[in-house]
Design a protein around this nucleic acid. Sequence first.
DNA 1: ACTCAATAATTGGTTAACCAGTTCCTAATG
DNA 2: CATTAGGAACTGGTTAACCAATTATTGAGT
Lengths: 233, 233
Amino acid sequence: MKLDILTKTENFDVQKHIIASIRDLINLKNLEPGDKLPSERMLSERFNVSRGLVREAIQKLEFYGLLESIPQSGTFVANIGVIAMNGMIEDILRLEAPDFKSLVETRILLELKTVRLAALRRTEDDLVQMKAALEAFSKKVRNGEDAVQEDLLFHLAIAKASGNSSMNTFMLIITPEIITNFAKYHVCDKGVAEIGIEEHNAIFKAIEDQNPQLAKKKMKEHFKELYKYCYNV
Amino acid sequence: MKLDILTKTENFDVQKHIIASIRDLINLKNLEPGDKLPSERMLSERFNVSRGLVREAIQKLEFYGLLESIPQSGTFVANIGVIAMNGMIEDILRLEAPDFKSLVETRILLELKTVRLAALRRTEDDLVQMKAALEAFSKKVRNGEDAVQEDLLFHLAIAKASGNSSMNTFMLIITPEIITNFAKYHVCDKGVAEIGIEEHNAIFKAIEDQNPQLAKKKMKEHFKELYKYCYNV
DNA sequence: ACTCAATAATTGGTTAACCAGTTCCTAATG
DNA sequence: CATTAGGAACTGGTTAACCAATTATTGAGT
């Protein structure tokens, strides 16, 4: 049936098409929460695509909580009504890869919160890990080496200490992409790093002292320095 | 090789184990950014698991930006150094399903930002969609029907109008889970909804008037009402 | 010895056959 | 007629064989 290997974007478009088809089918058959979807085999035949692609599309909708597959039984519409289902699928289909500005904006939002929560909730173990990341960062910078990774790990340690696993996850999702972009646009090269040491230390101390206001303030200053180098990309 | 069907949690544990094995292998062989991982077949043989499971683990690491698979060529270590790689994988392995409190906390954080951004950036088309969601909500509430879905769609419309695709994505991720929990704990039943209409209208008007401060304030009030019913879960 | 085309081996991606539960229908029994 | 074993058909999950593109190897020609 399939003749050639698809590129990733082609594959992505096909998946979108399948998702839209599933939505149409749900509407056509007036499927409600708990109702069973046609089997993967029937869907693949109906949409003229391989069963594997149908599976991937279903798994994506499962990721967003719209479907649920039960082994040896079937795939079921989640406990979300028709209206929400349509609205969410429309949004999912329209989603595009985030631009750099969105990423930075989101990172700042998340970190100004995680740093406050970390100041409130950090455990002794959190402090140990943050301290380790911080010293690894300082050491590399003083040696004149690139320390983007260590920088990142310090920020991730804060996210972990926030005790909010949602925000922690989201930080993990956006961080690699931010690093890649930083490297691509050659921001955060030498010079910025030395200042970064002091700023990191200040943030750490505020968290250690359980002073959320100060922690947030120091993080803001830290980002202000980044802004100057990064924002007009 | 495999004898029985795994439950989802078992499968999840196996995947974690594979990811840890891949990390160990990267450390053992001192693989650096751009280096090639052993082939999927070799990994599956080495770890004594099926190739499909190896594939899923690789795809997960690809999702987090740590690996990159190139067809007919190989799987490569992303442009992230050894230190960051280890730190991130450790975090990924420790990640657990977010508790309800984390979800609510994150939702509030995101929405207090998206509502401000929406007030600044909303287009005419955004207004039309928000208005539609708002009226669908009002109509259902006045009929005494459950309107959780319409409520949600209004908030998602705001996220879309924020023009930040990262935050939009994150809202889409956490929203279904929040709805499920709301339904489970029977929060936001009758009574709250009527108040919700006015609050939604106020938020919409602030966005329409491009008044970010007011929009945020109204959203805060909206959540305050939710707090009373939801926070002690 | 060196170059480079031909070929064999290897790669991630894809597909079809298979597996073990589940579901639904049937027919035998009370 | 109602009930319930029994089995056939169907389900999502899994596996092994297959595909085309890439990469490594080889060997003939200069």
